[in-house]
């Protein structure tokens, strides 16, 4: 009894019980606000150079210190949040929409459509993320858009797989049969009766993969495959700091911490969503 009520008790109540997921939400909101209002938050311009203040350690004037060009690392990290977070959010949103829809179609129609969609997804999945990224960036040239395209392409098959499995389960439920008996169209059944019932499971993965996408972007930037300098990104900052890791460790540590915070907040949100989804896990934890 309690299991059924918990599973359908709504996200907000479950989130209320899991305090940590609220910490994650607040943290992520703060990061997003900082990114949106970067010009107001950052005390200096992200590419303003100053020969006088090169490689300064953190101080009240320069919270995160300065780099080899005397640029304020805090301001760069604030502007870098724009790139990192938008790459994460946009690529996951695109990957979720396209991949999720393909997965739902494959699961719902089955047979030939299922085979064609899922086999092509398997092909995409068989290339490692980094290789796919390198190929796409090499073909299209390094830019923000192309980084997003590269990450989206690697996310599509993952979302397709995640969406297909619950679709298979939901389509066997009697209310879908009832919809067919009432003469509803496939589009209506998919949009109004299948998608809402698998959305939570997809959102859990979306939050976790946003964290992943942020890290992948940082990896691309570290390898010089991402946005061109001098535009700041967290991954790019780590790479620039790497050359001076022994003289000026703060140059790499602070952007690293930013990535950590973003990933941590998204993982906390993902855990909260998962509790909302699978109340049995939650109950076991409460009991033990």
């Amino acid at each position: 009894m309690s299991a059924t009520s918990a599973s359908s008790g709504g996200l907000v109540q479950t989130f209320n019980r899991n305090k940590l997921s609220w910490v994650g939400i607040v943290l992520f909101m703060v990061l997003c606000l900082i990114a949106i209002f970067a010009p107001f938050v950052a005390p200096y311009g992200p590419i303003d150079q100053s020969v006088m203040t090169r490689m300064r350690p953190p101080s009240m004037e320069h919270l995160f210190g300065t780099d080899a060009f005397g640029r304020d690392q805090f301001s760069r990290a604030v502007y870098g949040a724009r790139i990192s977070l938008s790459v994460g959010v946009v690529s996951v949103f695109l990957g979720m929409s396209v991949g999720g829809l393909l997965g739902v179609l494959a699961g719902y129609f089955g047979k030939r459509i299922d085979t064609v969609i899922m086999r092509s997804m398997d092909v995409l999945l068989s290339f490692p993320t980094l290789i796919t990224g390198i190929v796409i960036v090499a073909l299209l040239g390094p830019s923000l858009t192309n980084v997003i395209v590269a990450i989206t392409v690697t996310l599509i098959p993952k979302f397709a797989r995640i969406a297909r499995a619950p679709t298979l389960a939901v389509k066997e439920r009697a209310y879908i049969e009832a919809c067919r008996a009432m003469g509803f169209s496939h589009a209506r059944i998919i949009l109004f009766h299948i998608v809402p019932n698998i959305l939570t499971e997809i959102l859990v993965m979306a939050s976790l993969w946003t964290a992943n996408a942020i890290m992948i972007e940082a990896g691309f930037a570290f390898l010089g495959l991402g946005v061109r300098p001098p535009t700041p990104t967290w991954g790019g900052m780590i790479r620039e700091g790497f050359e001076h890791i022994f003289q000026a460790p703060w140059m790499s540590i602070f952007p690293g911490l930013c990535i950590l915070l973003a990933v941590l907040s998204l993982n906390l949100i993902g855990d909260g969503l998962r509790d909302a989804l699978d109340p049995r896990l939650k109950q076991v934890r409460d009991m033990g």
């Binding site: 359908s8 009697a174 209310y175 049969e177 009832a178 009432m182 003469g183 009766h193 809402p196 019932n197």
Partner: peptide, 19 residues
């Protein structure tokens, strides 16, 4: 279709929980 309708065994799976 409207002329023929169905009632199912399991009242827990025959209604869309999100509706």
């Amino acid at each position: 279709r409207p002329s023929m309708q169905m009632i199912f065994q399991d009242p827990y799976s025959s209604l869309n929980p999100k509706q």
